[in-house]
Design a protein around this nucleic acid. Sequence first.
DNA 1: ACTCAGGTATTAC
DNA 2: GTAATACCTGAG
Length: 289
Amino acid sequence: MKYYYLDKEVIVENLKNFNLKHIFECGQAFRWKLEEDESYTFIIKNKIINVYEKGNKVIFRNITLDDFENLLIDYFDLKTDYGVIKKNLEKIDNNLKKAIEFGYGIRILNQDKIEMIISFIISANNRIPMIKRAIENLSEKFGIYIGKYKGRDYYQFPDLEVLANQDIENLRVSGVGFRDKYISKTSKMLVEKIITLEEIKNLPKDELKKELTKLSGVGPKVADCVMLFSFNKRNSFPIDTWVKKVMEHFYLGEDTTFKEIEKYSKDYFGELAGYAQQYLFYYARENKI
DNA sequence: ACTCAGGTATTAC
DNA sequence: GTAATACCTGAG
């Protein structure tokens, strides 16, 4: 990977295994906007960043070199060689090979822990457009204003303290529905340090999952998403309806239980389970399996 | 009007 | 432990 800074842009050349649509639309992130020019605008902390692909270049706009080196390299997981991961997964079977060919540019983003917890609480029994809208509403209502970009106002994801101090009714106005009480309880639990993320972040996956599911609104699926996308636990295997479908379709047949799928994926994909999940999920949802 | 969606909590066996 | 049911909200 080679990159350089020019006119408020960072230009990266010859980035392998990288495709913006695959990355943003494989279900791991919610705070992004596809622009008219095919670029994506997204938020990290208090920064509004725009990115697009042109030939063999990836161009990040509205940033400094410092932002790229200290935020984006980690965020886009650019130090991980996805070529190796893909090669190892493709060896497993032709289903994976097909899914990887379809979503060849997927990378697992390293996102903010709090944002992932709240966002995936909202995702429960919900649709993606609704989830995105609820998160934007929450940010606009309770987050700090960051600025304007391409005519739109942007807000930081709300601080825990702010969420913890809201009345339930006040949260519900954001369109989070019955998940209002989960957000409230979980925010309070984290603020009051009943669960301390700093203390549990390095626990082995299964112990970490046990801690995370103590949070209100966080069950096995949400915990797996949170671990995969913000705790760097790449062996997590979130099983949602799409993954259940695709696992039954490719491997296990109809009416397989959650527990059976969980065990199978662990044995079959091992430490690469999280990556496998992303390719399979994206393939299943985009092809309506 | 009615079903259902990136699951979880609650209640009842 | 496992199964059944309710749950905001709005698009189809």
